[in-house]
């Protein structure tokens, strides 16, 4: 009996390690993350408008249907990126994401006031 409880305890400890390992490895092995989904349609270093999401078809889950969205898969290997964004009457924002989907920087039209470009 004691022996089985020890095996169970060992299994649970090992399970904790499995849990942490899968959580940490998942972003690197995910095959349906945002970048992969966008790779199918958006060419590199080009701004491409995304079709408005519909119940049957959306490029990404949880897209806001109130917004017109365009994406650019940028590649900084060949040099820095310079982005000029026309400001519209409505709310406009630009978000920068890393390959893994981390939103490391975002700015809206009012915060950008005047500075119509940003580079990284």
């Amino acid at each position: 009996m004691i022996r089985w409880l020890l095996w169970l305890l060992g299994g649970l400890l090992l399970g904790g390690i499995v849990h942490l390992a899968t959580v940490l490895l998942l972003p690197r092995t995910a095959t349906q993350d945002a970048y992969t989904r966008l790779s199918a349609t958006a060419p590199a270093n080009n701004i491409m408008p995304l079709p408005a999401p519909t119940p049957d078809d959306a490029v990404l889950p949880f897209m806001d249907p109130a917004f017109a969205t365009a994406v650019c898969r940028y590649d900084l290997a060949a040099g820095p990126l310079k982005l000029r964004v026309p400001v519209s009457q409505a709310y406009t924002s630009v978000s920068f994401y890393a390959r893994s989907g981390i939103a490391y920087y975002a700015i809206n039209d009012r915060a950008a006031a005047g500075a119509s470009s940003s580079s990284i």
């Binding site: 899968t22 959580v23 940490l24 998942l26 972003p27 995910a30 349906q32 993350d33 945002a34 992969t36 989904r37 990404l60 889950p61 949880f62 897209m63 924002s93 978000s95 920068f96 994401y97 893994s100 989907g101 981390i102 939103a103 490391y104 920087y105 975002a106 700015i107 809206n108 915060a111």
Partner: peptide, 30 residues
């Protein structure tokens, strides 16, 4: 925090799995 570079490993894994782009904190909050 999911909309910043301070995102925790669980949220990172969750967005990689679902395929969404979280709203950036300079943009807004959901």
């Amino acid at each position: 925090k999911t909309g910043t570079s301070d995102i925790d490993p669980y949220a990172r894994a969750a967005i990689a799995r679902s395929g969404e782009l979280p709203i950036g904190s300079g943009d807004g909050v959901a």
